[in-house]
Design a protein around this nucleic acid. Structure first.
Length: 290
DNA sequence: CGATCTACCTGATGGC
DNA sequence: TGCCATCAGGTAGATC
């Protein structure tokens, strides 16, 4: 499932490929792939436009058009953006094909159809209107430790720290996998109340999160056998083998040897080490018991 | 208001 | 072997 490192890898693949290209035609073969606007509007907004840049905010890709709007893409669970030539075999679940002026194509492939594309106006900060709700990007250098702590607290009362990390309105880009890995590295229990996180703990979570995201980008993301995430050329990333807890329930904790457990937190499968991630206080345990 | 629940999907997996 | 039930997961929108 693409999260920040995977989307960033795709962005880096696509930038040299898309920059300067002019859209010749657009074909939508699955209605749901473009659902925020009429298909005709989407196609008309793209045809004849030149692509000037490829950016990312959280898990959203933003492809700038020459003007005041952008093509926005979210891969959700199973979406892929693939570069291709017109003669290349069409993969199953290909829902959108964009043809360019140099006989190349960008293809949107998405088995679970949760992903989507849309064209959206940019505001004065060149942010798409629909992405105004997003918090700062998780790898934004300007996000200080103090600001990060404030984001985690965020007026929350009963929400867990894991829920806070997953909240894209607070912090953009962290999904289930990297939330688990960061909390393990920072030795913070996923069920801890966000409101109880100290500044020292927040600093540790921020530091580990940034370290892990950077390492995952360097490894070109996390891929699984389910064929979910691959880069723009169809190649898997190499970071999954370095996961410490995600998908490793029952295995030995690499730090203390205890068995990794899988529980449900914030309605998500959550992996953690019960002995070396600080336990919630008794009072917190009672609050988040259900 | 914050927090939680549900819908949206399909491929993979497990049980019988 | 085949069939069915279950699960996974990000976000929007509804509900608590």
């Amino acid at each position: 499932m693409p999260e920040l490192p995977e989307v960033e890898t795709v962005r880096r693949d696509l930038e040299p490929f898309l920059r300067g290209r002019v859209v010749r035609s657009v074909a939508i073969t699955r209605d749901r792939a473009v659902r925020r606007q009429p298909h005709a509007d989407f196609i008309a907004a793209l045809r004849g436009r030149r692509l000037t840049d490829v950016r990312r905010h959280g898990k959203f890709l933003i492809v700038d058009l020459d003007g005041e709007d952008a093509l926005v893409v979210h891969l959700r669970m199973s979406g892929q953006l693939r570069v291709a030539r017109p003669a290349d075999e069409l993969a199953k679940h290909t829902h959108v094909v964009v043809d360019f002026d140099n006989k190349t194509q960008l293809r949107f492939v998405d088995p679970r159809t949760f992903g989507e594309m849309f064209v959206d106006p940019l505001d004065e900060h060149r942010r798409p209107n629909a992405l105004r709700f997003l918090g700062p990007d998780a790898v934004n250098d300007k996000l200080s430790a103090v600001a990060f702590h404030a984001l985690l607290l965020g007026g929350r009362t009963t929400a867990t720290v894991k829920a806070a990390l997953l909240d894209q309105n607070s912090l953009a880009g962290v999904g289930n996998l990297y939330a688990d890995e960061a909390l393990f590295a920072a030795r913070v229990h996923p069920k801890r109340l966000a409101a109880s996180i100290t500044s020292a703990e927040a600093a540790a979570i921020r530091k580990e999160l940034r370290r892990i995201l950077a390492a995952a980008i360097k490894a070109r993301g996390s891929s699984f056998n389910d064929g979910g995430y691959v880069d723009a050329y169809g190649n898997p990333g190499a970071f999954a083998q370095r996961h410490k807890v995600y998908g490793r329930n029952g295995q030995a904790c690499p730090r203390c040897g205890s068995a990794i457990e899988k529980i449900v937190v914030a309605q998500r499968g959550t992996h953690f080490c019960p002995s070396c991630q600080s336990l919630p206080t008794v009072r917190e345990s009672r609050r988040v018991a259900r």
